[in-house]
Design a protein around this nucleic acid. Structure first.
Lengths: 209, 209
DNA sequence: GCCGTGCGGAATGACTCGTTCCGGTGAGGA
DNA sequence: TCCTCACCGGAACGAGTCATTCCGCACGGC
């Protein structure tokens, strides 16, 4: 009875458990924890993914796809209001189970990252850049903000906290709302240089969240 | 030649190295890394501190003292402007080498925490509470904000980033400035329940940053 | 009732890290 | 100049953790 349907459910269950565990504990979390949450044995995970690295890659691909979809949907839903599109994108990414916590360590030291992964990441970057610059051209978003700032803000809104995803999402939204007025503001110069994408990538290396 | 002076310098060097390493990598960082940064051998650390836990406690006591001093100084420097005092406190805590990153995992699961530690933590909480409620009574700080929010915001402003402390401090200040307008704002209700101190403590358990 | 597939969880081996042990070194006194 | 000794850095050790693999079992199909 390994129907295609069955296999798909199975995959979904594992990926989703891995997303939650990695988001809460970072990529250093043991595979056994993922297995337990998914309600399967460890061996079953290894039967489908050759190793932990590949599993993590799949999880990140899934989460980045979600971010990309969020960006496209925000752009389409609010074609005439760049600020609204930007806000919708931010809120969408921070929603519970969106998995933003898991896309955040963006850098892979080793060269053995799949093509898909790299391509998707590039697309994500471009979409964020577009949302930011569109809102800035409309004078609705602080000029000193760079697209990498947005990404880094996602990371800031995602500290490792030992609670369930619902509560973490609630807190993310809470602090996002505190942030929004400052993002519109056009006042004082922001201290510190904006991060560049490659600095950001270098900074986010460690296994942790 | 173990002059008192020499011993004090030595202590200072170790504690300060430990602060930097713990702040960057979390308390799970190996002791050997601290030794290397301090330019001493591991054994020398163990000659002064019975074990890693006690070393970490000393580091956290030093950093919390700094936070307490920051709060008192802010209150005294700006006795008539609660908002200014609050902002000064925030900026002071986030400054480079203030060690805020290291006070953040506030909870110790085991009961074997020194009296000093507990007392100091209590004092820190009271001072933050005072800064917050004073500013709120003056109508200068958002009412829905609880003192534990402030602490949690410190954590949010301190993600684990693999750069030197100077750059991390620069980014902390950058994002603090984005946050400030939202903290004054009196507008929309903030989503999500404010954290209580004990929820906060429970959440921050894991070894990580 | 027998066979084969697929599963969960125990077993394994590599590795990391806290803590301890040991040989070296350099200052001060004879 | 040589000896002594206090102190130091780094290697060594043992425990614990985790990725990955192996094994016996349970259950559907014949």
């Amino acid at each position: 009875m390994p129907t295609t349907q069955h296999a798909a459910d199975y995959d979904e269950r594992v990926i989703s458990a891995a997303r939650e565990v990695f988001a809460q504990q970072g990529f250093a979390a043991p595979v056994s924890e993922i297995a337990e949450l998914a309600g399967v044995g460890v061996a079953s995970i290894y039967r489908r993914y050759p190793n932990k690295r590949r599993l993590a890659e799949q999880v990140r691909i899934a989460a980045m796809s979600r971010v990309v979809a969020e960006a496209e949907s925000a752009r389409e839903t609010e074609p005439d209001d760049p600020w609204a599109a930007f806000v919708r994108f931010m809120r969408g990414c921070l929603r519970a189970h969106a998995g933003i916590g898991v896309v955040l360590p963006p850098y892979e030291e080793s060269a053995d990252v799949s093509e898909d992964f790299t391509r998707l990441r590039q697309r994500m970057i471009e979409l964020i850049e577009e949302l930011v610059s569109t809102a800035q051209r409309a004078g609705q978003l602080r000029d000193e903000l760079r697209s990498a700032d947005v990404f880094l803000l996602f990371k800031h809104l995602n500290p490792p906290l030992a609670t369930d995803e619902e509560r973490r999402a609630e807190l993310r939204q809470r602090y996002l709302e505190l942030l929004l007025p400052g993002l519109r503001e056009r006042a004082d110069r922001l201290p510190g240089d904006a991060p560049e994408w490659d600095e950001l990538f270098r900074m986010c290396v460690p296994g942790g969240q």
